[in-house]
Design a protein around this nucleic acid. Structure first.
Lengths: 107, 107
DNA sequence: TGGTTATATGTTAATATGTTCATATAAGCA
DNA sequence: TGCTTATATGAACATATTAACATATAACCA
């Protein structure tokens, strides 16, 4: 069950919907700004301005990218007054990100 | 050593070079054509025309994308006469691709 | 209600990306 | 050498992506 083989389609093409989700998700991880945001959220819940200040990115850019990540359900938020605290929302994808970072470090 | 925590930089930013490699690699996986090619190469070694025919993509497109993947050392090839047989060249990244496909299937 | 702070949104411009066409290269063979 | 097949390359085009700016919304508080 856990060999290095594609579960659904051994020797067949990936179905279109899966392909779409896969590429969309990887696309999300294919941008430095989004990776930096996710890496930060991996460590702790952050408000939008906190992210912007920590990473030295403009607030609107952070907000746009958070929306992007939210659409893919990679992040979520809770409200506290006017402040929105964002956190990651997909353990599996975060684990994949971690793996890739480790992989890149050791190469 | 294998907890869900970023090895090099707990509570720090990813270094620029690592970030570059990570995002480049994810970018490679963020395109349907390249994912289809890699998925095919996961199953077996293929010539360029074989890939083009199997996936119904133009030869030049395949060649361009293979160069892209080769630059990132995600694929390699061996020559047999005029034919080049491509195969995948990064077990770890292929495993990550498999994980994401499984993840997408089950979501 | 009016002011303040936090965040979101719309628009735009610059850049990056992916595919196609046409053509070049390179190996094998008669 | 000349022909054929397999693959690579370059240029052009259309589209997608990103960040920036300006502005809107939304919640809180005096």
């Amino acid at each position: 069950m856990e060999e290095l083989e594609f579960e659904n389609s051994p020797s067949k093409e990936i179905d279109e919907e899966t392909l779409f989700i896969v590429t969309q998700t990887f696309k999300a991880l294919g941008d430095p700004t989004r990776v930096r945001i996710l890496h930060l959220l991996f460590q702790k819940e952050c408000s939008v301005n906190e992210i912007a200040d920590t990473l030295d990115i403009r607030q609107s850019t952070v907000s746009h990218q958070l929306r992007f990540l939210k659409n893919l359900r990679l992040v979520k938020y809770r409200r506290a007054g006017t402040t929105l605290y964002y956190s990651h929302d997909d353990e599996h994808v975060m684990l994949i990100l971690k793996q890739m970072i480790d992989h890149a470090c050791h190469s």
